[in-house]
Nucleic acid binder design. Sequence first.
DNA 1: GAAACAATGGGATACGGTTTCGCCACCGGC
DNA 2: GCCGGTGGCGAAACCGTATCCCATTGTTTC
Lengths: 368, 368
Amino acid sequence: MSQRKAPGDAGRATIRDVAQRAGVSVASVSRVLSGNYPVSEELRRRVMKVVRDLDYVTNAHARSLAGGGTPTVAILINNITGAAFAHVAKGVEGAATLRGWLSLVGTTGDDPERELALVNLMRQQGVAAVVLLGGAYDYDEYQLRMARFARSLDAAGSHLVLVGRPPLEGDVPATTVDYDNEGGAYAMASHLLSAGHRRVLVLPGHQELTTAQGRLRGAQRAFEAYGVPFDPGLVRHGPYDYEHGYDAVEESLREGLDFTAVLAGTDVVAAGAMQALRAAGLRVPEDVSIVGYDDIPLASQLTPQLTTVHVPYEEMGRVALRAVADRREGGSGRRKGADGDHLVLGTHVVVRNSVRPPARREGADRGE
Amino acid sequence: MSQRKAPGDAGRATIRDVAQRAGVSVASVSRVLSGNYPVSEELRRRVMKVVRDLDYVTNAHARSLAGGGTPTVAILINNITGAAFAHVAKGVEGAATLRGWLSLVGTTGDDPERELALVNLMRQQGVAAVVLLGGAYDYDEYQLRMARFARSLDAAGSHLVLVGRPPLEGDVPATTVDYDNEGGAYAMASHLLSAGHRRVLVLPGHQELTTAQGRLRGAQRAFEAYGVPFDPGLVRHGPYDYEHGYDAVEESLREGLDFTAVLAGTDVVAAGAMQALRAAGLRVPEDVSIVGYDDIPLASQLTPQLTTVHVPYEEMGRVALRAVADRREGGSGRRKGADGDHLVLGTHVVVRNSVRPPARREGADRGE
DNA sequence: GAAACAATGGGATACGGTTTCGCCACCGGC
DNA sequence: GCCGGTGGCGAAACCGTATCCCATTGTTTC
C-alpha cells in the first residue's frame, strides 16, 4: 500500500519497475537500453531478462522530453485517396522509416482552417518537419499564410516543406520540392501537335489552382512554338475529377465544338473524357486522341492505355524527406543558401496507345 | 546569465516563459490554456496576449507525460497506394480528426518483421489503439502473433483493431471490423450465373490470403446453389494486381480454356483481365463478361464500367475508430463482451455495364 | 605497498507540463 | 467589527526517461 505501484498493476511498466525488479538503478537500465554507455555483460543480461519478462518498452513521450526521442515528420495532405499524392506520401513515409523516423499524417480536406489547426497540432508534437502536399490555390493570402507557417515552425526548431506547390517568395525558411510542371505540359502538347493535331480540347483543371495554371501555360507555349493558333474557346476549367472530364467533353460535343484530341489535366480527367467520347459513339484513339498527366497506375490500366506525363511523385517524397534530414544532420551549415531550398525534378512523356494522327476531315486542318 | 534562458532565445517558448512575461504563475497559464478551471477574465486576457505574442504552443510530449494529451491512433497498412485500404485509412483518419485524435501511419510492406517493429514503436508512443489493415496470410503463426500483439497492447492500456482480417480465436483482447467477404462473392457469382454464364474463369487472389479464400468459397457456394458444377481448372491464383489479371487471362486463352465470363478477385485484377481480352480481340462484355470486387473508383472509370461488389471501406475505418473511442470512453463497461468485438459490415453488388448474357456458342451451355 | 587510474554503477537533476494542496483576500451575515 | 466561507491564484509534487556527476571497486604502475 505504501509503494507507489502494486507489482502486477495494470498500465505500462516503467523503467523503475524494471530497475527494482532487476535490483539495479534506473540509470543502469536506461544505459543498457540506449546502449551508449559501457555496461558489464552481467548487468546487461539481468536487465534484458526483466525487460523481456515485463514486456517493457520505453515511454516515447518521456524520452523525447528528456532530450532523446525519434524524429517525426508530419505529412499534411488534402485527400489520402488521391493516387498522385498518395505516392508522395509513400515516398516520404518510406524514406522516414528507413532512417528510423516516424510519420504522422493529417488530411486537410482543402480547408484552410483545418490546415492551420493541423500545423499547430504538429508544432505541439515537436515534429522535425511538416510536409505539405498538393497544388495550392493562388489566393493572395497563400504566400502570407505559408510564410507565417514557415517562420512559426522555424522558430520552434522545425521546418516547412512544400511539395508540388509553388515556392515561397522572399526570405522564408522553407524548402520546396517541385517538378517541371509546365515543361511536362509543353512536351505533352508538342506530342499531340507533332502527331498532326491542331484543334485540341484542353482541360487544365481549376483556374485558380497553380498546377492547372502551369499546365495550361505549358500547352500554350507549345502551340506558339509550333505556330499554331491557340483557341481559348477550347479550354474548359474544372476540378481534377472523373466527372469533370466526362461533363466537359459531353458539353463540348453538344455545343458542336470541333476538336481531334483532348489534353486532360490529369489521368483521372482523361478517363472521364474517354468515357464521354465513347458514350457519344466516338472511338479512342481512332476518332479522337487523348492524353493525360501524372502517370498514375490508372493510366496504364485504361483501354487504350493512356499516353501521359510521368511525374516522379514517390521520388519527390523521398527527396523531401532527405532534404529535411540533411538539414537536421548538417547542422547550421548552408544556412538559407539559395541552393537546396528549391528542388525541381524532371518529367517526361510516356507514350502509350491513346494518340493517333487525326482522321482527315473537311476543314479541320485549316478553317477558322 | 543566471537565468535559465535568454529572452529572445531560439527554440520553443515554454510555459514558464509565458508565465514570467505575463507576471503570473505557471499553474495559471496551464489553467487558462486547458480551460478546465475557473480563472478571472483579467488573467485570461493577460495570458492569452502573451501566448499570441510568443506564438506559444504546449509541448505535447510534456503534456501527455503529465497525464493529459490527445489520444493517438496508429494505422498500420501494407501499402498506402492501394486504393481499397487507402479508403479505410481515410475513414480512420477522418473519424479520428473529428474527435481531436491524432493519426500515426506506418507501412509494413507485407514484412512481419516490420510489423512487429512498428507495433512496438506504437506501443512506445502510447497510442490509444493500433489499427491493422489488410488481408492476412493464413499461416499458423498468424493467430499466435496477433494474440501476442493484442495482449501486449492491452497490457499497456492500448487496444488492437483488425480491419479486413479474420477475427482472432479464443479470449483475446482485440476488436475485428470485417465485411461480408464471402457473401459478396456469392452474390457476385450468382449475378453471373443468373445471366446465364456457366463457365467462369475465377481469379480469387493469392491462395494463402484469407480474403482470397473467402471470395473463392463464396463463388463455389453460388455454383452449388445453382446446381452448376464448379470447374477447379478454371481457377487461377495470384497476387491482387493488374499484371496477374492480364497474365492469367492471356495464359488461359492460350491454353484454349473455354469460358464466357471472368470473376476477378479485385477491380484492379479485372482491369488487367479486360486488357488481356481486348488484346486477344475479344470484346467486353459482348464476347466475355467481367466482374470485379471492391468497387474502388477505378471500377467506374473503366470502359465498360465494371460491375463489382461494393465494400464499405471508408465506413469500416470510421467504425473501427468509433469502436476504440467508445471502449475508451465507456470505461470498463462491457468487458470482453462477445458483442462489439467483431463487427461485420454488409456488401452489395453494383451493377454496371460489364456483364451480358453469354453469346450462344456450340456446346458452351450443356456439355462438359 | 601506496597512489593514480580505468571501468562501472548509483543518486540527483532536468525536461515542460498538469494537478493537488494550501494560502490569501474579499465577501456577507450575525 | 469579527468570523466563516469562497473564489482565485501560487508553490510544489509528480509524470518517465536521459544524463551529469560522484562513489566504489578492481587494476596498473612506481
